[in-house]
Every structure is written in structure tokens, then in C-alpha cells.
Design a protein around this nucleic acid. Structure first.
Length: 106
DNA sequence: ATAATGACGTCGG
DNA sequence: TCCGACGCCATTA
């Protein structure tokens, strides 16, 4: 049960962008929505929840750098493995100032 | 048609 | 820095 139903075009766009996020970089839900120029943070979040299992979803975080709800541990592990800029003693938050990907580079 | 929900974001305390 | 309230918007009940 990875893909429930048929992902709409918007979902495919979201997933495509997430796959293009370079290793060690991240984007927020709002960033993705703005980048696509369609929908909103909640719609992106819905897509990730439903069909995000096949993409590097740990590179999608909240605007303040907090990880995906329910997968915090996995996020920490991935970020550390990918050398993603983090803040805090345990790297519990992404340093958005450095890790944010605008969609240009890469 | 109305109300509640959710992998969000911003603001005020 | 942490937490709650509100706004946003498609989906679901």
C-alpha cells in the first residue's frame, strides 16, 4: 500500500520537485507550493502523506526546519547521513538558512 | 450544503 | 524558545 489510488497531476509535480532536491538540501511544504505556483502547503502535505513514500520525503520539512511528524528519528538519521545543515545539539532542526533549496542550483 | 480534518504557516503571549 | 490560536484550502464525513 504505497500508492493509494491515482495520483493527480498536482501530486506528480510535487513528487517530481521533491526528487530533484539535491542531497543535503531541503524544501518546505510552502516552498514547494510556491515553486509550483499552485495549491498550498496543506495540499503539498496531503500529497506527501498519500504518495510521498517513493521520494526523499525527509528533504521536505516545515518552514521552521522541524521534521516530518511521525518520522522525526528517520529524518535525523537521513540528515546526518546526507550532511544536511542542522541546528540543535541533536540536530533536531534543519538550518533552513543554509539547507533551503530554491530550485535553481542542481 | 455545512462541519471537521490535516506530513502547513504566521502571529501573539 | 515553546505553545496556542487563527487562517488557508482540498478532501472527507
Amino acid at each position: 500500500m504505497t500508492a493509494q489510488g491515482d495520483p493527480p497531476p498536482f501530486a506528480e509535480r510535487v513528487l517530481d520537485v521533491v526528487e530533484r532536491i539535491p542531497r543535503g538540501k531541503v524544501m518546505s511544504y510552502g516552498d514547494i507550493a510556491e515553486y509550483l505556483g499552485e495549491g498550498g502547503p496543506r495540499q503539498v502535505g496531503r500529497v506527501m502523506s498519500q504518495w510521498g513514500g517513493g521520494v526523499p520525503w525527509w528533504r521536505v520539512v516545515h518552514a521552521d526546519g522541524t521534521p516530518v511528524p511521525g518520522h522525526e528519528r528517520t529524518c535525523y538519521d537521513r540528515w546526518r547521513a546526507e550532511r544536511t545543515p542542522v541546528r540543535g545539539e541533536d540536530g533536531e532542526r534543519v538550518d533552513m538558512r543554509k539547507a533551503r533549496w530554491d530550485g535553481d542550483t542542481g
